[in-house]
Design a protein around this nucleic acid. Sequence first.
DNA 1: ATGGCTGTATTATGGCACTGATGCACCTCG
DNA 2: CGAGGTGCATCAGTGCCATAATACAGCCAT
Lengths: 117, 117
Amino acid sequence: MNPNRPSSNRPVYLKLRDQIAAAIIDGAYPEGAMLPSVRALAAEQGANPLTVAKAYQQFQNDGLVEVQRGVGMYVVRGAAERLRATERETFLREEWPEIRSRMQRLGLDPANLAVVL
Amino acid sequence: MNPNRPSSNRPVYLKLRDQIAAAIIDGAYPEGAMLPSVRALAAEQGANPLTVAKAYQQFQNDGLVEVQRGVGMYVVRGAAERLRATERETFLREEWPEIRSRMQRLGLDPANLAVVL
DNA sequence: ATGGCTGTATTATGGCACTGATGCACCTCG
DNA sequence: CGAGGTGCATCAGTGCCATAATACAGCCAT
């Protein structure tokens, strides 16, 4: 009934990007470790290798990942913390205000929902 | 750096839909009142009449507006409360879980940000 | 050196969502 | 009845997304 902003409707390469970013922040892909190859992750996720490459692209541009041609892509030192910092800033600046006003309109209080772990 | 989910990248007809829904909930479009015509709202918002019509479409399907062909569209009785209820439910079921885990990953606490009015 | 693994560039294609222009059917009011 | 206001259907254009099939360039262990 409400085609809003579920992650389902997002492009694949962006969902992959978010998923990888989460893995880096959480340490599932530790610093210095090699990321799954584009072909491997593509096979695992049932996606196209180029789509995975497009997701990886963003991290190289931001210098969070180091590419060794013919070898693989490695998580740079300090990538997790740097990534969390920028994501946090972006979230607070671009997403939270809308979410906040939206919840207020719907009569919801973030403080109450916070405890729902 | 982060092509995430800002309202800027959303389709126009969905932004309009949200805006109209907010107006109904807030009482800016009172129950029983006539909505702005597709052409009027289109001109005001600098959009195409069809795009506005597409935004209105959702509300007719949900029975929140009544259409009188050749006359206009009117807000149904109880539309505001019904709209708020379903929007709240949808938000809690589809959006909040992701937001919640995302904030947790970024080290943010909704309870602290709640006071930022 | 060779086979097998990396990432990457190229080109083409299909699908789908979004937007837009035009015209038609309907109603109300003078 | 006719003018001007409604919503709405149809058709077309555009751009992004995802996929595919190759091919190439680099590295490494056997």
